[in-house]
Write a protein that binds this DNA or RNA. Structure first.
Lengths: 87, 87
DNA sequence: GTGTATTTGTTCGTATGTATC
DNA sequence: CGATACATACGAACAAATACA
């Protein structure tokens, strides 16, 4: 049941909770390397948070080298072809 | 008259002001049932707001059952032939 | 048939203002 | 005060479908 995935009052702020969930899905392969991460709006709807919060979460993943973003296109899971050093 | 139809600092946000003006024109018949609403770009130019803002306004009218949009075609004022329940 | 313009759909980037903790 | 969150707005780029010369 997935209940509420995000707890607005949790110890960890919402943007870190979202980042953690997405990171787990990437590691589990639910979000495959090279594939696109859902759009910011889609994630915003899914988690019930503002787009701003989703962007903060994606920034964390980007800094962690898990994804890379292409303006006007989308955010993609880092794959073997994406040298970590390139981002 | 007509001055600046939209007040960026008004109590109501721009997209609601645009929606209200268009809704009034529909009720007044200026925008007749079945006819096409000006394109998003045209409305953007007319009101001096971003296309994004126009889209938000049209979303309000759509949710209110006043208009319906056809991709790549345009947005039309709801007419007798358009069962409200269909949208 | 071909190319071009129009129009809506989608996506990310950025900025501002407000509110809360 | 700073970090976080949310709503709104504007901009830019591109896609896809449609319309038309």
């Amino acid at each position: 049941m997935a209940a509420r995935e995000i707890d607005p009052r949790g110890v960890e702020p919402p943007f870190r909770q979202v980042a953690a969930i997405l990171a787990a899905e990437i590691k589990a392969g639910t979000l495959a390397p090279g594939s696109a991460v859902p759009s910011e709006k889609a994630l915003s709807d899914r988690f019930g948070v503002a787009r701003d919060t989703v962007r903060s979460a994606l920034r964390v993943l980007r800094e962690g080298g898990l994804v890379h973003t292409v303006p006007s296109r989308g955010t993609y899971v880092m794959g073997p072809d994406d040298a970590a050093t390139e981002q």
